[in-house]
Computed example of a mutant assay.
Amino acid sequence: MKKLVYVFGGLAAAGAGTYLVIYLYRWQWQRAMLCGVLLLVVEVMLFGLVTLGRLGRIEERLRDTDRRQRELTARQEDALARLRQPSADHEEARFRWLEDPADRTYVFVPVLMVTGVLLSGLAWVVQRIASATARPAERRLAGRLTVLTAPDPVAHDDLEDMPPLIAPPSPRRTARVAAVGLVAVALLGALVVGLADLTQTRDESRNDSAATSVILKVDLRGPDMSAERRSLAALQVWERCRDSTSVPLSHATLGDLQDGVFAGVVRPALTGHDRMRLRGCLEDATLEYAHLTVVGIGDADTDDD
């Protein structure tokens, strides 16, 4: 399910980014802003999904760690209880004679005291003999443990001859990463330069025609679809787009040709770039319940009616 969401999110982001570039090229700023907002929303959604997935995996690992720790603690407690049980049973059975009534007399205590004194003397003799004979054994044990001791500090010159702990990257991998980075930078630069070239305002050669004619069609959506409503919508969009070109359209008239079709005449004639900007402004979705379509746009000579 998550993979399907990622696929649809990636497709939505690619579509929004594509139409963002298209609408910027067509000078349709309202639609470009909508696509940009949609692209931003999709990117935030994908980032949130990835973050939630990472947090979910971290939380699952923490739960597994806690569960394993509890199981380990339980096993340790069980093993500790098993180890302590025999000693507890042995302690319960020790010195039962002390629980007998005090009116009975025993000879066990004096015998035990004399035996303790004799054993202490015997232990002292054994300790003296062992201390006299243990020195050779200690030397042999130290010789056996020599292999486990840390080596002597290595000189600085010897450290330089040792190989590095981290192997340097291979030349092929470095060249491959550098090539991929250069291609990515080149593509990004080409995209930015191309988009800037398509959307910038530039000086063009003057159009020698007398005027430029524009044919519009207005489509309304809603309960009120009268001719007056179409005419008002066409005039609102036309007046708003008169300053969308590089040269303000001070002489621009709009006439009604009936059935939602209007004809506009612009003087002086527009260049190719200004035509694109005027078309994009007219067809941009800025008026509620109304959509304008540029049916045709062309130059009109002085001999044309």
Rank of each mutant, 00 (worst) to 15 (best):
L254K: 15
D203I: 07
R206K: 07
Y289M: 06
P169E: 12
G56M: 10
A74F: 07
R176E: 12
G280I: 00
G222V: 09
A155P: 01
E288D: 07
Q30K: 06
L34N: 10
G298V: 06
L55Y: 06
G264V: 06
A227Q: 10
V125D: 08
Q30Y: 15
G260T: 03
W29K: 00
D299Q: 11
L141E: 14
G116R: 12
L118E: 09
D152I: 09
T73P: 03
V218I: 15
A79N: 02
L148E: 15
P223G: 13
A252P: 05
A130S: 10
R221Y: 14
A227N: 04
L278C: 03
D158P: 02
G48T: 15
I166K: 06
T271I: 10
R57A: 03
L72T: 10
A93E: 11
W238R: 00
R94W: 07
P86W: 08
Q30P: 00
A234S: 09
G222E: 10
T65G: 12
E71M: 04
L220S: 03
W29L: 01
T105W: 14
A234W: 01
E99P: 04
A142M: 12
R31N: 03
G53I: 10
D299W: 06
R75W: 05
G9W: 11
C241W: 00
D66W: 09
E138P: 07
V42S: 04
L11K: 15
A74M: 06
F8P: 15
L287T: 01
R26L: 14
W124G: 11
S246H: 12
H251D: 10
A14G: 08
L182W: 06
A269Q: 13
P136F: 05
L216R: 01
P164E: 07
P163S: 05
T18K: 03
P171H: 08
E283K: 12
V37G: 14
G181A: 12
L278G: 01
R242N: 00
F108Q: 12
G143I: 10
R277M: 01
R67T: 12
I297L: 02
Q85C: 11
P248H: 11
V294G: 02
A134T: 09
V247G: 00
P169L: 05
E59L: 06
L52W: 12
R57E: 12
Y19G: 02
D158M: 08
R67F: 08
V180M: 12
T146N: 11
Q30V: 02
E71C: 02
R140M: 05
Q258F: 05
H90K: 03
L292A: 03
Q69L: 11
A32I: 03
A269S: 15
D219K: 10
K3N: 15
R31Q: 08
R128Q: 13
A155L: 04
V266W: 00
A167W: 05
G17H: 02
T199Q: 02
Q258D: 07
R94E: 05
Y23G: 01
P110N: 07
V42C: 04
R139P: 01
M225F: 05
M33P: 00
T18E: 06
R206N: 13
R267W: 14
